[in-house]
């Protein structure tokens, strides 16, 4: 492989990894920007999305957990991946609405710390509930082979320059690009988006102007949740599936938001790409041997992500696209 194609592979891997973070970060960011609500349970929505996707798309056999003990160890509808991709966002959207109505709403007027604590508590409860029901063991989320029985989505694909690359990863990038594009248009070019944008700047002002903000808030929360659900579905086959995935993905997702700047979709996209590319680069770089000392980069891939974040925040505390005056 040439250097160019190797770099191209790293780039695509970075895009794919970043895409998952982007899906999570866009939701986190608009919820934080518009509603001033900090959602530590956003990872739990990813968790719900992954398990729901698994349930809809495949047939699964549990090897631990209460469901298995109670004799429901075989579960899943086996409707295929496309069904999951359509139904899961709807389902998680509904979960998001419930969360806004019954939890977030009571905490809008309470301090940030209370919001963090209560959503953290919820995240733990959801995680433990899944652990009790489905067990701690990782479940296999096999990549779909075909969508609608004709469009191949698995296996390698021959690309110019890059050479062979996993087809599924390209799909993840494409799906993310389309969804984030839709949300971007929604926020930037519709009346609903106007409220979101204005709310990001000054919720009090919007309230004074007499726009009833409670409904848009509900929708914002739902959309953010749905995106996390999608991330769970498309990310499921690429990562392990167990009850801790939600909390584990929350940290990089939050970093993405903070790096990009709260409340901007562009920021979330750029932040996600920076993190994804950093990780992919450190994993993909060949080890360097200087004299007798071999420097291997891949163990630093996780560390590098945080180091990049630290550097960016030192230079620009409000994030790359963040607005200093309105930052909460």
């Amino acid at each position: 492989m040439s250097i160019v194609s190797e770099l191209a592979v790293i780039l695509l891997n970075g895009l794919q990894q970043g895409a998952i973070y982007v899906l999570l970060a866009v939701g986190l960011s608009i919820i934080l920007g518009t509603l001033k609500f900090v959602n530590f349970a956003h990872g739990a929505l990813y968790l719900v999305g992954t398990y729901a996707g698994l349930f809809i798309a495949l047939d699964v056999t549990l090897s631990s957990g209460k469901l298995q003990e109670w004799g429901y160890g075989e579960f899943g509808l086996g409707w295929g991946f496309l069904a999951a991709l359509i139904l899961v966002p709807l389902f998680v959207f509904a979960v998001g609405l419930l969360m806004e109505r019954f939890l977030a709403r009571s905490f809008y007027d309470r301090p940030d710390t209370d919001q963090i604590l209560v959503t953290f508590g919820l995240a733990i409860v959801v995680q433990e509930l899944f652990r009790v029901l489905f067990g701690s063991n990782s479940l296999p989320f096999t990549q779909p082979e075909y969508i609608l029985s004709v469009i191949p989505v698995s296996g390698p694909m021959q690309l110019p320059i890059v050479g062979s690359f996993p087809r599924w990863r390209l799909w993840v990038i494409a799906i993310t690009a389309v969804l984030v594009g839709i949300v971007y248009l929604l926020v930037e070019h519709t009346d609903f988006g106007l409220v979101v944008r204005a709310g990001t700047r000054d919720a009090e002002m919007v309230r004074l102007l007499g726009i009833k903000i409670s409904r848009p808030y509900l929708v914002v929360f739902g959309i953010g949740a749905a995106l996390a659900g999608v991330a769970g579905v498309v990310g499921g086959p690429l990562n392990v599936v167990n009850p801790t995935v939600g909390m584990n993905i929350l940290v990089p997702a939050f970093l993405t938001v903070v790096i990009g700047g709260v409340g901007t979709i562009t920021g979330a996209v750029v932040g996600g790409l920076i993190i994804g590319l950093t990780q992919a680069t450190l994993i993909g770089l060949p080890s360097v041997t200087i004299a007798s000392f071999t420097l291997n980069f891949s163990p630093w891939s996780q560390v590098g992500l945080y180091a990049i974040a630290a550097i960016i925040l030192l230079v620009r505390p409000q994030g790359i696209f963040g607005n200093e005056e309105v930052a909460p």
Binding site: I116, V303, L313, A327
Partner: peptide
């Protein structure tokens, strides 16, 4: 590093830096 920004950022940044240390001791 973390106190450069108040409120929620502080929580997120402390979480992030602690995780960085975790990954540092895990491998490098």
């Amino acid at each position: 590093l973390s106190l450069r920004r108040g409120g929620i950022y502080f929580s997120i940044l402390t979480l992030a830096f602690a995780q960085m240390l975790y990954y540092m001791s895990a491998a490098p």
